[in-house]
Design a protein around this nucleic acid. Structure first.
Lengths: 127, 127
DNA sequence: CAGCATCCCCTTAGATACTG
DNA sequence: CAGTATCTAAGGGGATGCTG
């Protein structure tokens, strides 16, 4: 009930209190939702997540083949962002030729209920 | 379990089947999640949603004041997008001066559980 | 009051080529 | 194999001014 029933809301990116509703839990704020959305928004992130959920681990080239129109640049960029947010884990095997595996972290797996909630909403609203 | 336990996944924006997993429910796909994310991504959408959840209805100028750094252009743009996605409702009172109110639709209210799921994930992962 | 129109910048994404 | 580097095109977002 984080969203509806708390009483202090903080502006995204600032600490400015914007709600008229009163005082309450300062940490329970809209910018957490914004950061969660930011963590999954991006042209290829959900696709990457999807493929990792279907099968783990995935090598870079596997993901490249699994996601037809992605460029190397975008793939690595989105993977790095997911890694920075603690959603995927990059494992390097010091071999020749290079071998890198990507896995979901616990946080990545923990995203599933939220993604399902979004999915269900989309189904319900026929979006 | 829409996300994990179905068997046919469809590429975003296309009808191309990309999963190796097999056949199953074609409608239950990743691009629903992508559209749900798209519906709430955007610099000001969550803020707008937030203010409408706190109190309804809101006039354009109210939202403008409630969201300090938003420009009129962006505010109207994001409102129109939310309206196009059936999340907010725009009600015009044919008066002089003009009077327009924004409310959440049922679909907008139905977004709350999904937003809470995202919030909770952000809290759990200390993002 | 509630917008629309225009200009401009700056980031983002794609294409392409190169490398340890 | 798994990236990095560079260039360019598109568009998102801000500032400003105007209007029914």
């Amino acid at each position: 009930m984080a969203w509806q029933q708390t009483y202090t809301y903080v502006m995204a990116g600032t600490s400015e209190v914007v709600s008229e509703v009163g005082q309450g839990r300062p940490g329970c704020s809209i910018d957490r939702v914004e950061r969660a959305v930011a963590a999954v928004e991006g042209r290829w992130k959900l696709l990457i997540l999807h493929h990792l959920l279907v099968r783990e681990p995935r090598r870079f080239s596997e993901l490249e083949r699994a996601i037809p129109r992605v460029t190397q640049k975008m793939l690595i960029q989105q993977l790095r962002a997911l890694e920075a947010d603690g959603i995927v884990q990059r494992i390097v095997y010091p071999e020749v030729p290079p071998h890198v595996e990507y896995r979901l972290t616990e946080a990545g797996t923990a995203l599933v209920p939220a993604l399902n909630a979004l999915h269900d909403w989309a189904v319900d609203t026929e979006l």
